[in-house]
Amino acid sequence: MPKVVFVLVPGLHLLDLAGPAQAFSDAAALGYEYELHYVAERLAVPSFQGVPLTAGLTWPRLEKDDLVVVPGWHGHSPIGEETARRLAAHHASGGTVASVCAGADALGRAGLLDGRRFTTHHDLQDAMARRYPKAVLVRDVLYVTDGGVVTSAGIASGIDLALHLIALRHGPGAAARVARSMVVYARRNGDQPQAGVMLRHRGHLADSVHRVQDLIDDRFTEPLPLDALAASAGVGVRTLTRRFTAAIGLTPLRYQQLLRLERAEQLLSEGSTMEAAARAVGFEDARMLRRLRRRASADRTSPAS
């Protein structure tokens, strides 16, 4: 069972902690196994909002599939050398280390920002850029992933970060279900538009269409015949096509293509080749992916867009 370890620092912002913790807790409740741990350099951890917290002093044994998250804090609250060492060691062993808001400072102190892209709360960006000149600050985005180091902006963006990580591990359908349980928006890669494909097309009230979207979200990399989608909704093919298009303005095939394109863009941003990204999202080769990217580029630059 993958572990999610939250490192608590005095003066931490409650939502920096509670947002990601709720996301992974909800994911566990939905059957995506996670084991949450809370550690600190002292037992009593005061939050900036005044709620006292307690945490363990002993870290669990970490494996490469585990995640360490450092929530942000208010004021000057640097981590100790032992915590910095643990962060660096987990990353060196292949694990993922993430931060919310000022938590990026802890990653910087552990040497994990040097040579990497990162982000943080907009009020802290200038100071962090000066403090870690070997890092590349990315402004005005929700989160940035670079080589097993994931940094997010302030406060509520920790939820977006958690949903992103859940989607990477379990797929976009899992992230959508967690987002729905939390009554929040699902987000996509921080370098891309903030509202992802799934969320942009979920503002309707057609239950049968939602059921089909759930199926496509879960299996968008697979061939999904229209008759099978219609059967899952208990309607005919023509009825499904009509309802689906009326609800979201897209056919089921086009919706699936956009999910594939969004995931492929994410893989490309992380260094994947065009061919590998295409195959990972269900295309036989890169030709269709290139065609969809050209179409998306044309749509963005057209006068009507």
Rank of each mutant, 00 (worst) to 15 (best):
G103H: 07
M1D: 09
D114Y: 00
L67F: 05
I79C: 10
R263Q: 15
D146I: 09
L124W: 08
A228I: 02
A23C: 15
A98Y: 00
R200S: 10
V138P: 04
S157C: 14
G190A: 02
A110M: 07
H204G: 06
A127P: 04
V9A: 07
C101A: 11
A228F: 02
I155D: 03
Y185A: 11
L161V: 12
P223E: 14
R200K: 14
Y255M: 05
G95V: 09
V68Q: 05
L142T: 03
P2T: 13
G108F: 00
A278V: 09
L107T: 04
T245A: 08
I155G: 04
D160L: 05
P52N: 05
R211T: 14
A246V: 00
V68K: 03
E262F: 05
S297V: 03
R116Y: 08
P71M: 08
D227W: 09
E222C: 10
Y185K: 05
S152M: 08
L87P: 04
V149P: 01
V149G: 02
A40L: 08
A104Q: 07
A28E: 13
D16M: 08
E284G: 12
L205A: 14
E81A: 15
T241C: 00
S157H: 06
L14S: 04
V235T: 13
V97F: 04
Y132M: 10
A276E: 15
G190S: 03
F220R: 03
R202E: 10
H37P: 04
G94Q: 13
F48R: 13
V184P: 01
S181I: 01
L36H: 07
L224I: 11
A40V: 11
S152C: 14
T120H: 07
Y34M: 04
L12G: 01
T54N: 12
W73C: 03
R180N: 05
G72C: 02
Y255K: 06
D105G: 08
T301C: 00
S272D: 15
R42G: 12
R295M: 11
R116V: 06
V39S: 02
R42I: 00
Y38Q: 14
R177G: 03
A156F: 10
D218Q: 15
D227T: 14
H210T: 11
V184F: 00
T301M: 11
R117D: 13
V100C: 10
A18P: 01
R117V: 00
V136F: 12
D191K: 07
H201L: 12
G271E: 09
Y255H: 13
S232K: 11
A175Q: 03
I79V: 15
L57E: 10
L292F: 14
G11L: 07
A135R: 00
G80H: 12
A296P: 01
M288V: 15
V5A: 05
R294I: 01
G158C: 05
L142P: 01
T96L: 13
R260E: 01
R219F: 10
L259R: 04
F24K: 08
V70I: 14
G80P: 12
P172R: 13
D146E: 06
G154S: 12
S99W: 02
G80F: 09
G171H: 06
R188I: 00
L289D: 01
R242Q: 09
A27Y: 07
T151G: 03
R202D: 13
M1R: 11
P10T: 09
T119D: 09
D227K: 14
L137W: 07
P20W: 02
L36M: 12
